[in-house]
């Protein structure tokens, strides 16, 4: 599924005193099968951008194309039925832990697939599968979602979207509030899903996750997209101007290079790849 933004602007509550322009002339191209990270300072419009992907927000001007769906204010061009789009693009929201409502966790995860017309038996099967994938033990399935901790709720919410088997998975700060192991587990899950051929788009403030997992990164600043690059390209340059933090691993690698070691910075993604590079560099 090809995703394209053409000169997209979005204004909240237009023509009122609360009018607020949150996106300005955004042009964007997200390739099918990519693992794209979206980064930028708090309030720069990341969540606003993401809500355009499944038609929750319609651009005030410009156009969003997702596959064959057209989101625009132009009445002739726009797609009328957005429900199919919402099945294909699954969005996990920033505060997804407060979308749970059913009596049991399993029922809550089944809610999505059932809404999109799955048979009860199939919905059950895929929900159990997805709950296991996100690391919720079977003994929890019949518990009330309100008994869970914040991080567990987040996992259940993610399972709720995975169970819809979307082609594009969109995650707004999926790891906020998870412990370091939990973060790793969940990111590895997204990586697996991405390797199955699905597009994954995620918003994060954690640059080391971007470096380790993303194939592409979009940097936003003050309502606009200021850079599209691969993580390696982004962190090799001086990205201070975008107010981003450099991942520890990149800093370490840069320090080693300064001390005379020969490393290929584009290959450094995490500890193991850094070690590989160091070994290679010394062998030369």
């Amino acid at each position: 599924m090809q995703i394209k933004f053409l000169d997209v602007s979005y204004t909240y509550s237009p023509k009122t005193p609360y009018e607020f322009n949150a996106l300005k002339d955004v042009n964007l191209d997200i390739k099918e099968g990519s693992f794209t990270g979206i980064v930028g300072k708090t309030g720069c419009g990341k969540s606003t951008l993401i809500q355009h992907l499944n038609g929750l927000l319609i651009p005030t001007s410009g156009e969003v194309n997702v596959d064959t769906y057209v989101l625009t204010t132009n009445k002739k061009r726009r797609t009328k039925k957005l429900k199919d789009l919402r099945k294909k693009v699954g969005v996990v929201f920033q505060f997804s832990e407060n979308q749970l409502f059913e009596e049991t966790i399993l029922k809550d995860v089944m809610f999505g697939p059932l809404n999109f017309g799955a048979k009860a038996e199939d919905a059950r099967k895929i929900s159990i599968e997805c709950l296991k994938k996100v690391g919720i033990p079977e003994s929890y399935f019949e518990k009330s979602p309100f008994e869970l901790s914040g991080g567990e709720k987040r996992r259940v919410a993610i399972a709720g979207i995975l169970a819809m088997s979307p082609d594009v998975l969109v995650l707004d700060e999926p790891t906020a509030g998870l412990d370091p192991t939990g973060t790793k587990e969940i990111m590895n899950l997204f990586k697996t899903i991405n390797e199955e051929g699905k597009t994954v788009i995620f918003v994060t403030h954690d640059m080391s996750l971007v470096l380790e997992y993303a194939t592409n990164v979009i940097v936003m600043k003050d309502k606009e997209i200021v850079k599209e690059a691969t993580p390696a390209e982004l962190f090799i340059e001086n990205q201070e101007e975008y107010n981003l933090e450099t991942p520890q691993i990149s800093l370490l690698a840069k320090a080693l290079i300064d001390k005379g070691l020969k490393l290929d910075l584009t290959k450094v993604k995490d500890i193991s790849s850094l070690v590989d590079e160091i070994v290679k560099g010394r062998a030369k």
Binding site: N54, L56, V91, F93, S96, N98, N115, G160, I161
Partner: peptide, 16 residues
């Protein structure tokens, strides 16, 4: 605001 957020989340899960 909260209502709006939850409606968005449920709409994404296929609620109309």
């Amino acid at each position: 605001d909260e209502t709006h957020r939850i409606m968005n989340a449920q709409t994404s899960r296929g609620v109309d």
